[in-house]
Design a protein around this nucleic acid. Structure first.
Length: 680
RNA sequence: GCCGCAAUAGCUCAGCCGGUAGAGCACAUCAUUCGUAAUGAUGGGGUCGGGGGUUCGAAUCCCUCUUGCGGCACCA
């Protein structure tokens, strides 16, 4: 998947390289079928295509020279593998979109002269172009822009490439008052040539490649949304107005994409949260969750699972919600994390205690107090303290997003106090726990990223060098042990202010990535708080502290699960597991027997004795996504059976009551509990 | 926080160029006892997000605040 923030890459060589000292008379071109042919030096791809067949030339939009997409009109100056890429080729999609971005920019500048252009890259599902204009665009402008784009495409103007000198280019853009383009020009390294792509009278500074003409873009494109975006992604820079669009080779592909967006909206956790009555937000509590009974049941299932997985290795603790500001000064939070923190004072005007208390944004200082309380021996290490700590962070108003980004959340947090010698093993142990947890929820694709020292940080460079070295070694081991299943990456400068971290990124059912787990190695906070243990030789030593979370935010993880399962939870997580209902009121007494038996077996069950038609009740409970619907009528009562209808199936099975309950109980057993039973 | 958009019944939404608020679903009551995705009838429900302004008159126009949505920036 392309990096969202990076403009499309492609064609690399430059026209200025095309003047060889000694000019070889021929070049040899190898075609995909393995055949080779000689052509005069400098023959263009288009000429070769034409020499093979006019229809090939017509069909081809770009060539791949040794695998690199290159303008068809570029002369070929060395032996190469040559492949003609047609418009239907997946590789052409990037060009269709990139060309569409240029056409959109032309359309916008034609409609609103004076608008300045900046950059217009291809992104994962389309393209965008950032403009500078005092009056921002709105979606109401889309029809006009799209109409103009259609005109430009219908004109089928060739994309032509020119190489300009730096000075000329600067002058041209300065004359047009395109100050952003001038800035981009100045950022191009001196050894690179300046390429301009023209379509009719319109031109843009661009590295290419492009297709032969605007007509190749086709009509399967659509403008999607407008948004503000900072120039060069820096919030100190001016705000540009960005128009997002998408384009496909065929209308069917565009329709399928729009359909897919619609489907993704249906599993949006905010929507399902309302529909399934799981939680809500309201104005008076921006970014804090009101959990409803069903949502809280789901949340607690998750917490119980995580608590079981502490598994005797960790001791669970609970540290205070608010603590004197001085503690946060000691930790460095007051200096480095202050804009994210809530602080409180007594609201009483006559209160004698005027100290500021900080609502904890992290659990680590609290756990350090617990570690420090009483003398610790090296024999106590590693000491692993876990807490389902509720933390509050003041998030920027625009950052909030349902359960995914909130101001108050529960972390499945733990801190491991250990010695240097124990560090690598502790990291690997945490790694195993994280991976096995994700796999229990059905997440397979995991990326582990190592985030290194940020600019704002505490501690000496030596301690950072050391921590990063240890973690790089562990990362290599994680990758090696996974047998290729786990991918790894480096995230420079993204570490926490007190230490480098591993970030675990999982991919959900519809291909979105979520950063959840984290392991942070901290050589700083224990020292800042004066934490120590007595080593074997009787000397005081400072422990290393490893911060670790698996779900990260339990709220976010719940949100991810809602979307991952589209509200159709596996039985062990479903808030309501079983609904018992009747055909007619004749079945009421037996339904009560069934519900009581299911409840006694530990299932979460409700009973629906309403005098409604069975069709109506089936529909209602299906929409509520209840996993198992037990319908009982006269027959079931007589035979002591139940009719089971499972969510997502339109048939039903009749089973003896005991058997049905035993099967449901087995299915409702959490995966970790099943594993433990299997081992016993 | 920044740019844009939005806020009308529990939910989804209509309400034009300012003239005093509507639908479907949900809910309640009554009738209906029905074998696996909507039975019918009747009824209740709104300071049109808050505040201010323009106007004879504001859901509608303007200002402002709050919250949400889409991005950006930030991030668990």
């Amino acid at each position: 998947m392309p990096d969202k923030s990076t403009p499309a890459q492609g064609f690399q060589f430059t026209l200025s390289n095309l003047k060889p000292v000694t000019q070889p008379p021929k070049i040899t071109v190898t075609f995909p079928d393995g055949n080779t042919r000689e052509f005069p030096y400098g023959t263009t791809g288009l000429e070769i295509a034409k020499s093979i067949s006019p229809s090939l030339a017509k069909r081809t939009v770009v060539m791949a020279l040794d695998g690199v997409l290159t303008d068809l009109t570029d002369p070929i100056v060395q032996d190469a593998r040559l492949e003609f890429v047609s418009r239907d080729d997946p590789r052409a999609l990037e060009l269709i979109r990139h060309d569409a971005a240029h056409v959109m920019a032309e359309a916008v500048q034609t409609l609103w002269p004076g608008t300045q252009v900046t950059i217009g890259p291809v992104i994962e599902n389309g393209f965008y172009y950032d403009f500078f204009r005092n009056e921002p665009f709105t979606p109401e402008d889309f029809p006009a822009i799209e109409k103009k784009m259609r005109e430009i495409i219908a004109r089928d103007q060739p994309f032509t490439k020119e190489e300009w000198t730096r000075d000329d280019t600067r002058k041209v853009f300065e004359d047009k008052d395109e100050r952003f383009k001038v800035e981009l020009l100045e950022a191009i390294p001196a050894d690179q040539s300046i390429k301009i792509y023209k379509q009719g009278d319109w031109f843009d500074l661009c590295r290419g490649p492009h297709m032969a003409s605007t007509g190749k873009i086709g009509t399967a494109f659509k403008l999607m949304k407008v948004a503000g975006a900072y120039w060069r992604g820096d919030s100190n820079n001016p705000m540009l107005t960005r128009i997002y669009g998408t384009a496909f080779a065929k209308q069917d592909d565009l329709d399928a994409y729009l359909k897919q967006i619609e489907e993704a909206e249906k599993r949006d956790h905010r929507r399902l949260g309302r529909e399934l009555d799981l939680f809500h937000f309201q104005e008076e509590g921006p970014g804090v969750v009101f959990w409803h009974p069903k949502g809280w049941t789901l949340f607690q299932s998750l917490v119980s699972y995580m608590r079981r997985r502490l598994d005797g290795d960790y001791a669970e603790v609970n540290a205070p919600q608010i603590l004197d500001k001085v503690l946060w000064e000691t930790s460095g939070h007051w200096e480095w994390y202050r804009e994210n923190m809530f602080a409180a004072q007594s609201a009483g005007e006559e209160a004698e205690d005027k100290r500021w208390f900080v609502l904890k944004p992290m659990n680590c200082p609290g756990h350090l107090q617990i570690f420090k309380h009483g003398l610790k021996s090296y024999r106590d290490l590693p000491l692993r303290l876990a807490e389902f700590g509720v933390v509050h962070r003041y998030e920027a108003s625009g950052a909030m997003h349902g359960l995914m980004r909130v101001r108050g959340f529960t972390q499945d947090d733990a801190h491991v106090f250990c010695t240097e010698a124990q560090l690598a093993e502790e990291c690997l142990k945490i790694n195993e726990l994280i991976l096995s947890t994700y796999s229990d929820f059905g997440f397979g694709d995991i990326v582990v990223k190592l985030s290194t020292r940020p600019e704002k940080r505490v501690g000496s460079d030596e301690s950072w060098d050391h921590a990063e070295r240890v973690m790089a070694t562990v990362l290599a081991e994680i990758e090696a042990k996974s047998g290729g299943r786990i991918k790894t990456a480096i995230n420079p400068g993204e570490g926490a202010f007190y230490g480098p971290k591993f970030e675990y990124v999982l991919r959900d059912a519809i291909g979105r990535d979520w950063q959840c787990g984290t392991t942070q190695v901290d050589f700083n906070l224990p020292e800042r708080f004066g934490a120590f243990y007595i080593d074997a030789d009787g000397a005081k030593k400072t422990p290393i502290m490893v911060h670790r979370a698996i779900c990260g935010s339990m709220e976010r993880f719940t949100g991810i699960l809602i979307e991952h399962f589209a509200g159709h939870f596996p039985l062990w997580l479903a808030p309501l597991q079983v609904m018992v209902t009747t055909i007619t009121s004749e079945g009421d007494d037996y339904a009560k027997v069934v519900a009581a038996a299911a409840r006694k077996a530990g299932l979460r069950v409700e009973i629906d004795l309403r005098n409604e038609k069975i069709n109506y009740k089936v529909r209602e409970h299906s929409l509520a996504k209840v996993p198992a619907l037990l319908v009982v009528g006269k027959k079931e009562a007589e035979n002591h059976t139940v009719s089971i209808r499972r969510l997502g199936s339109d048939g039903q099975t009749i089973l003896p009551l005991d058997e049905a309950i035993a099967a449901l109980v087995d299915e409702a057993t959490p995966p970790d509990v099943k594993r433990a039973k299997g081992e016993a």
